[in-house]
Computed example of a mutant assay.
Amino acid sequence: MTTIDLNSDLGESFGQWRLGDDDAMLKVVTSANVACGFHAGDPQTLLLTCVRATDQSVRIGAQVGYHDLAGFGRRFIDVEPADLTADIIYQIGALDGLAKSTRARVAYVKPHGALYNAIVHHTDQARAVVTAVRAYDDSLPVLGLPGSEFLREAEKVGLRTVTEAFADRAYTPEGTLVPRSHPGAVLHDPQEVAARVRRMVVDGVVEAVDGSLLPITAESVCVHGDTPAAVEMASQIWTVLDAEGITVEPFA
């Protein structure tokens, strides 16, 4: 692999409550997963994020999630599939409207938090999200975990699927993400994270929490914008990959 996309969850501040350094992250990522107001982000924050992403030529993705501001979208909600489909269409449309006002557009869809993790195995919810994307714009790629029900359902209906790896999250031996409630679920050392991403991209493996090596193929790597030292992590990743001749650019 000679290229890799670097994405980050952005636009997650709300009113006077600030989360992460979006301006700095937009200088070191190639794709921005912008919140859509359901798990985080108010309209002014989302519009400003779209403006700044457009100014930096960073691709805008709709980061859709459960309707859960209080829980930051990190709590599973057993929502009916039809309701979830409508929720996802609503979120994509809202962000797309804001993006179009900046002469850009939503270019892909990535589920957030508990929804992302749920649709690894939850077929009904995975299918509901796929139905929503297909209904809104079936040319939109979707980002998800390799081997997930979400990507399987998306492939069935012809959506472009993009496999994703996580720079700052620990993996279980089964290839899923360690829940954030568990110790060590989030990685914090920028040099360790950068070396880990190099191994993912160059060697095609990631070390799980039990020390086993998992094969991994990813077109995009995520650095969470709310992780402490996220900007330094992303910068270190650029440096390490550049040394290997790997180009960081948006996925095709």
Rank of each mutant, 00 (worst) to 15 (best):
D42N: 14
D83V: 11
E149F: 01
A252L: 10
R134P: 00
P141I: 06
R59E: 07
P146G: 07
R52I: 03
T163H: 12
Q63P: 02
M1A: 13
A82N: 13
V34T: 02
D168L: 13
L69Q: 10
V221S: 01
V186E: 07
F72E: 03
G147Q: 06
Q44T: 13
A86C: 04
G245C: 10
L187R: 10
Q125N: 12
E153Y: 00
R59L: 11
F166S: 08
P250S: 11
I60K: 06
W238D: 04
L214Q: 02
C36M: 06
V223P: 00
P190E: 09
L151W: 03
N33L: 06
L6A: 07
A35S: 09
I216M: 09
H188I: 14
T2L: 12
G71L: 07
L95C: 09
T85V: 12
Q56E: 13
V209L: 12
L46I: 05
H112Y: 09
R103C: 10
V133M: 05
G211A: 09
T30L: 13
Q44G: 01
Y116H: 11
V58R: 02
T2F: 10
E155A: 15
R75I: 11
S8E: 04
R52D: 12
D210G: 13
G93C: 08
A243L: 09
V178N: 05
F72R: 06
A62H: 11
L19R: 06
A252T: 12
A99L: 05
I89D: 02
V197C: 06
V221R: 00
P179E: 04
Q91H: 11
Q56N: 14
L47T: 07
S148A: 11
A154R: 02
N7M: 10
Q44R: 15
L140F: 08
L10P: 01
T123S: 14
D96A: 14
T102C: 15
V221G: 00
V186T: 12
V130T: 08
A132L: 04
L177S: 08
A114E: 07
P183V: 12
K27L: 14
T54S: 12
V223W: 00
T161M: 07
D42G: 09
G147V: 10
A82G: 04
D21H: 15
G15H: 11
